[in-house]
Every structure is written in C-alpha cells, then in structure tokens.
C-alpha cells in the first residue's frame, strides 16, 4: 500500500482486495460485545473536516475508536479558507500535535494531495472526499457491499456489471468508484444526461449511456448518485421532474433489474429526485448496509496505513 490514500487509483488490485479482506475480518469485531481492538492504542488520528459531513466524520471516528486510537476532531469549516493559508497552518499545527494519520475532507479538489505532498506534515493522509475529485473510502465500502452480495464476500468483482447513475460531473464518488471497480475487474456503465458527464469521460475505463433503461437488465448493482436541485439553475437539466423521469429510479425501472441485483446510494438521498422512497426502502436496497460497512472499511484503511504498528 501507498503511505497515503488520496485516490482510488493509489490501490493496486492486491491492495484493494487486502483492504476488503481486512475490513471483513474487522467487521467481526463490530459483532462482539466489546467492540474495541487495541491495535492503534497510542496513535493519534485527526479528523480534519473543512467541509460539513457528519456522516463521514462519525464513520471515521467510530473506526478509529474501535481500533483504540486517540481521535481529534478538527472542524475547520468557517475559518478563512478563502485566503488559503489555513491548510498549511492547520497542517503545521497537526504536525506539532504528533498526528499519525490525518483524515481530510475538503471542498477543494486536490487538498489532500497538497497536504500529503507539500512537506508540511509527516502523517499518513486519508482523503475523505475532496471537491469534485475523489472519495476513495466510499468506493471501498461500495465495493465491499457489492462483494458481500455478489461475490460471497471474497476475492474481487471480476465480470460483475455495475451501473452508476446521476451527476457524474460533480461526483467524487463516481470518480473513485470507476477507478476502483475497474481495478477489481467489474464492468462499469455510467448513465447521465450529457451535461452531467465530464469532458473526456470517453477516456475513463467504463462505458457511458445516456439512457437508463438499456443497461438495467444486465446490471448486478445499480448505484444512484445524489443530484443537487441547484444544478437545474445552471442549466444542466430543464426541471426536476424531467430529470426524475429520465434518470430517476422508480419501481418500474427497478423491476427491469435482474432478481439478484442490489440498489445503492452513497447518501444523502434526494427522495423523489434520483430515487423514489419505495425503491430506497425496498428489498433490493442495501443503502443502510453501506453505512455499516463504511466503519469496517475505514478501520481497515487506518489499520493498514498505520501498519498496526506500535506507537512511534
């Protein structure tokens, strides 16, 4: 494994499978009455969140605590990021505090990369979502969830078909998922209106469709991405209603999926927009499981990046 986890592309096939296998072992811990492992005792994990995301922060926090690490939550939202100095200043502060790992969430693409490569800090850096770039632990927990349902919780996802639908242009989840799923041998199809696909998507290791119905009968997993209503104002699509009609997942579309297929969503959902409540809460939905698996995956990532070693 690399020293940092900045992009899903940092993971080789073997790395990715190792993270998934490790997460599966650690998941067993969560089932026990005593949920803590002593593995990272004496190590310090900092959650550095420049952008609000209670869900992701809590997931990382739970993961670190179950490994007995000391957790510091550093919420930098509202501080003057506009001037930019704060990332460096914050990094130097964390360095002085002896952080062993920094989990960073930031609205600017590349901020984790800067943190890891600017020489400001010696800690391992985990990207917990940066701008419209990547969110690698989300991709890992998605892959984990798929593997549990589609590959008996072992090996990779060779030959599985995954369809990802929605605002790919602004989605860090989509970027990381395409990279990781490709690494794990899955076939990915992205579905979106052309306005919500980035220029150059043809160079990505996946297929692209403007039509949602077509890929559904062959999909093993269907992932619906959050679409912000404000995108409508920037003319990415004409209306909420039209978006939901063409790219939303309702019961009719869900019925086009094969029997075994699962429905996923990275959350938070816009019910009625990209997914109807009926489907989100229906039997194919593994959305709640994704949240649970997130803790195991983040435990695995912290464990592997920090080597499970003794305090430095």
């Amino acid at each position: 494994m690399n020293r940092h986890l900045l992009s899903a592309a940092d993971l080789t096939h073997d790395d990715a499978v190792l993270v998934l296998d490790t997460a599966r072992e650690l998941a067993a811990v969560s089932g026990r009455a005593v949920k803590k492992l002593p593995t990272l005792r004496g190590r310090t994990v900092v959650n550095l969140f420049f952008e609000d995301s209670t869900r992701t922060r809590i997931s990382f926090e739970a993961a670190a605590k179950r490994l007995s690490a000391d957790v510091i939550n550093f919420s930098a939202k509202g501080s003057s990021v506009s001037k930019g100095e704060s990332l460096k200043d914050t990094a130097l502060t964390l360095q002085a505090m002896g952080a062993d790992a920094v989990v960073i969430r930031h609205s600017a693409s590349g901020a984790p990369h800067r943190l890891a490569h600017s020489g400001w800090i010696s800690a391992a850096v985990v990207n917990a979502g940066d701008g419209t770039h990547e969110h690698p632990t989300q991709a890992l927990l998605d892959a984990y969830t798929m593997r549990e349902h589609l590959a008996d919780g072992a090996g990779d996802l060779a030959g599985r078909r995954v369809t990802i639908v929605g605002d790919v242009l602004h989605s860090r989840v989509a970027r990381s998922n395409v990279l990781l799923l490709h690494t794990l041998g899955a076939h990915v199809t992205l579905v979106a209106p052309p306005t919500l696909l980035p220029v150059g998507v043809a160079t990505w290791p996946c297929e692209v469709s403007y039509d949602l119905d077509a890929p559904l009968p062959a999909s093993d997993a269907l992932m619906m991405l959050r679409v912000q209503r404000e995108r409508m104002d920037a003319a990415f699509f004409p209306s909420e209603r039209e978006y939901a009609r063409r790219y939303g997942l309702d019961a009719r579309r869900a019925a086009l999926l094969p029997e075994h297929a699962i429905v996923m969503h990275p959350g938070p959902m816009n019910r009625g927009m990209e997914i109807t409540a009926e489907v989100a809460d229906g039997p194919r939905s593994v959305i709640v499981e994704q949240v649970t698996n997130g803790v195991s995956i983040r435990m695995a990532v912290l464990y592997l990046l920090l080597g499970g070693a003794e305090p430095a």
């Binding site: 693409s109 419209t132 990547e134 970027r175 980035p198 220029v199 150059g200 160079t203 990505w204």
Partner: peptide, 15 residues
C-alpha cells in the same frame, strides 16, 4: 481552474 479535457475531468478541477 485548468484546461478542460480528460485531465480536468479526472482531477475534478473545473475546466
């Protein structure tokens, strides 16, 4: 933020 093309799409920087 940068030239719009395959790379900007990959880096998540507005083209």
């Amino acid at each position: 933020q940068m030239n719009e093309g395959a790379l900007s799409g990959r880096l998540g920087l507005r083209g």
